[in-house]
Amino acid sequence: MNLFRFAGDILHLLSILVLLLKIHATKSCAGISLKTQELYLAVFITRYLDLFWNFHSLYNSVFKVVYIGTTSMIVWYMRRHRNVKLTYDRDHDTFRYLFLVAPCAVLSLLINARYNLFEILWTFSIYLEAVAILPQLVLLQRTKNVDNLTGNYVFLLGLYRAFYILNWVYRFATEPGYSAWLVWISGLIQTGLYLDFFYYYVQAWKQSKKLQLPS
């Protein structure tokens, strides 16, 4: 564990809490992609399946439970809460799950470290996490005006990924024999997806203007 990894995990948690707080406080999920949230829930469940029999550290276990729990709450709010569900922008959140899930499933069967069920599910979760933000980015693009909290949510998520890259660089430099190609390449693709958003986020912040994405 190094400081970059720790900062990444905290930023990840913070991003989820910002979103949950926004939904809870405003009783609105306008601008939030349910598709992305459900994909993240699928990512967490397939990756943390080993929670009950593979104990690595209390730190990891607590984060796994918290990520699954908080993301489930977001999905519950958006699907079931009587007021919140009315604010869900289903007409614009039309990205097809299959376009992301199917290629990731095929890829995880073809490229993985060990050919067994849990390893394949873990690999699937790595590939799916890399692209799970796409429905959210498409929704932001479509609705153009991005409210502050939604913008902060995506920004914090991107920052979490950036810190994971720093963590890998640090580990590569300090841990002899450390390499994780599959995770690195997926992580680089994932972080790359945020670059465009980052550019507009920083521009808006510098000019103290509301974040607006170009068409």
Binding site: N54, H56, N60, Y67, R114, N116, W122, N167, V183
Partner: peptide, 10 residues
């Protein structure tokens, strides 16, 4: 048992 791969990150 080398069938297990260690995943130490989240």
């Amino acid at each position: 048992d080398d069938d297990e791969v260690e995943h130490d990150e989240l």
